[in-house]
Write a protein that binds this DNA or RNA. Structure first.
Lengths: 327, 327
DNA sequence: CTGAAAGCGCTAACAA
DNA sequence: TTGTTAGCGCTTTCAG
C-alpha cells in the first residue's frame, strides 16, 4: 500500500479510500491510484484491515458434517449470500463429535468473525458462556432451540417427527417403527424420534418401537437396510417404518425390495430431509422436506443486517410433508 | 493479552510464549499464565498474530460447487487434515462460473493464506500470473493439468474417459453415446468426453455420439433422464451410454427402467464419480471411481509440508473402474 | 528463562 | 479533497 501511495503520489490513506469509498476521492486522483494498483499488482491485506477496523468481513460456520447433502445446500446458500456482500466463509466441521465443538468454536472465534453460524444444536454451558461473552452475533441453524444463544433459523424437528407419524396413522398404519435417531450428537434425529413417540402415546398405539442405528462404520444407506431387517425380525407385524433420514430410508427401501416386501401395501417407508436424489431416482420416497438452502441464505441475511437491527431473530422456516409413493 | 499479562504478573511476550511454545516457559510461570487466561476467558486474536508473524494458518479453497458429493468429500478430507495441524479453511465457491474465479482468488489472497487449493482446472493468464507472483503455495485438484501452477493432486480425466470406453468396447458394445460433458466450465467432463472420442476413433467405431446436457436448470439426475431419451431418439440402435457423472447415470437408469429398456442387455449405462449412493441403493452402477477424500487429505499434507520441501509435487492418485451390474 | 522496543499493513479520528 | 498521527493485538529481535 505504501508503494502504491508513492507511485500515485498520494498518502496511504487515499489508497485506502480509493478501495473502500471511491466516491470520496477526486476522479483524477482515483484514476492515478487505480493505475498504480494495477501496475504493481497490489492485493490489499484484509487481515491488517480487519485488525485495524475491527471488522473482519468473515463469518465462521461450524457444521457437524459436510457429507449430508442437506447441510451442503445450507452452506451453499450461506456462502452465496455472504459473497454478495464481500464476506467470506471460514468453515469448520466437527464430524458429529460434540467434544470437538468447544475447540472448534474457540478457533473460529480467534479469527474474530463478524458472525458465527452453528449447525450443531446442543452446546456445553461453557460454550454458551464463551459465545455470549464474545459478543459475536450467532445464528443457530436447523433447529428451534428452547434456549437460543442468538438468532435462530430452522424448524421444529419434533413437529416434523409428529407430522409424519400422524400422517401414517391417518393412513391406517398401527404398528410403526422408528429407525435411527439415536446417534450421539445427532440431537435433531432424537427430536424427530420424540415427536414420533409422543404421537404414538397420544394415539394410544402403545410403546414406541425404536431400532438403533448399528455401528457408525456403516454408511447411512447400509444402516437403513440393516435397520429394517432388525425391525421386521423383532416385530413381524410391522406396517410402517419411519427412517430418521432419507439415505436411511433409501437403504430400507432397497432391502425391502430384496426381501420381496411390497411398499407401501405391506410396509410403508418414510424419511426425512428431502434428499434430491430420492425422487428422480424413481424411489419416490415419501418424506419430510427441509428448506436447506433457504436456511443458509436466511442466516447470511440476518448476520449481514445484525449491525443495524439489534433484535434477536427467531425464524421458523417450517418443513413440508412430501407425499409420494412409499407411504 | 495485555490484561492476562498483568494478571499473571508477566510481560505480554510470556503470555504469547505460553500459548505457542509452552516448553520454553518455566512451569510455575506457565501455570500462572494459564490460570489468568482461564479466569479472563481470553481468546487470542489469530488475525493479529497472523499480521505479526506473516503466517496466517489459513488455507483457502476454491471449489466450483459444493453440490457435488465428491467435492464434498475432498473438502472433508482437506478440512480434517488441516485441523490436525491447527490450520483453518477459508471456503469460496464459484458455482461453476469461471468468470467469478478471478475475483474469488483475489479475495482469498487478500486474507494472506498459507496455501491455496483450487478445484477448478482452467485459469486465465492473469490469474496464473497473480498466483505465481503472490508466492502462495497452490495445489490444483481433481485433474492433471498440462501446465500446473504449483502442486497437483489428481488423476487423468481423459484416461478415465478412455478406460470406460475401452471397457465397453471390450464387452462388445459398438454404438456408444456420451451424455453431458459439455457444460462450460466443466473441463473435467470435457476431458472425459475427449478420452471417449479418442478411443472411438482409434477403434474405428466412427464419430463420437454426443448428447449435450440440457438447460442448466435441471438437476443432474433429470438431465440424465432427458439425455438418454434424446440419445435413443437420435440413435435407436444405441447399445451403450457413458454418462459424464453418476447422478446423470442414475437419471438415465431410471428413465431406461420407465421405458422398459433392459440394462445392461439392451443398453449398457456407466457413470463417473463413485457416488456412494449408487451401489447400496440397488442401482449397481458400473462407474469410474475417484478418490475424492484422499485427494483432499493429500492436498492438506502437501501444503503443510510445503515450507520444508521446496519441490513441486505432482501426485496422480488414479481412478478405479468399478464393474457392477449396468455395464 | 523473561522482557522492552519496534513494527506487521491497515484504518479511525482528527486536522488542514 | 487529502494528509497526519496513533493505534489495532500480536510476534520478532535483541537484550538482560
Amino acid at each position: 500500500m505504501h508503494d502504491v501511495a508513492i507511485r500515485a503520489k498520494v498518502g496511504k490513506i487515499t489508497v485506502s479510500r480509493v478501495l473502500r469509498t471511491p466516491e470520496k476521492v477526486a476522479e483524477k486522483t482515483r484514476q492515478r491510484v487505480l493505475d498504480a494498483i494495477r501496475d504493481l499488482g497490489y492485493v490489499p491485506d484484509g487481515m491488517a484491515g480487519a485488525l485495524s477496523s475491527s471488522r473482519s468481513k468473515i463469518v465462521g460456520a461450524l457444521v457437524s458434517t459436510l457429507a449430508d447433502s442437506v447441510f451442503t445446500s445450507t452452506i451453499e446458500g450461506l456462502s452465496r449470500n455472504l459473497r454478495r456482500s464481500n464476506y467470506e466463509l471460514l468453515l469448520a466441521n466437527t464430524d458429529y463429535a460434540p467434544e470437538l465443538e468447544d475447540a472448534a468454536v474457540r478457533t473460529l472465534l480467534s479469527r474474530r468473525p463478524d458472525g458465527l453460524v452453528l449447525t450443531s444444536s446442543q452446546h456445553t454451558p461453557q460454550l454458551r458462556e464463551l459465545l455470549l461473552r464474545s459478543n459475536v452475533p450467532v445464528v443457530e441453524l436447523w433447529d428451534l432451540p428452547e434456549n437460543p444463544i442468538g438468532h435462530v433459523v430452522g424448524f421444529s424437528n419434533r413437529l416434523a417427527g409428529r407430522a409424519i407419524t400422524e400422517y401414517l396413522i391417518a393412513r391406517s398404519h398401527r404398528k410403526i417403527a422408528f429407525i435411527g435417531g439415536n446417534r450421539s450428537g445427532d440431537v435433531r434425529g432424537q427430536q424427530r424420534a420424540e415427536g414420533y413417540q409422543d404421537v404414538l402415546l397420544e394415539a394410544g398405539l402403545g410403546a414406541a418401537l425404536f431400532i438403533d442405528s448399528p455401528s457408525p462404520e456403516l454408511s447411512d444407506v447400509e444402516a437403513g437396510a440393516q435397520g429394517i431387517s432388525s425391525a421386521l425380525e423383532r416385530w413381524p407385524d410391522l406396517d410402517a417404518v419411519i427412517c430418521v433420514s432419507d439415505p436411511l430410508a433409501m437403504g430400507a427401501l432397497c432391502e425391502a425390495a430384496r426381501k420381496g416386501i411390497n411398499v407401501p401395501s405391506d410396509l410403508a417407508v418414510t424419511g426425512f430431509g428431502g434428499l434430491e436424489l430420492s425422487q428422480p431416482a424413481g424411489l419416490n420416497l415419501t418424506t419430510i422436506e427441509f428448506p436447506g438452502k433457504r436456511i443458509g441464505e436466511m442466516a447470511a441475511d440476518i448476520l449481514l443486517n445484525s449491525e443495524d437491527s439489534d433484535t434477536r431473530q427467531i425464524v421458523d422456516l417450517g418443513f413440508e410433508l412430501i407425499r409420494r409413493a412409499t407411504a
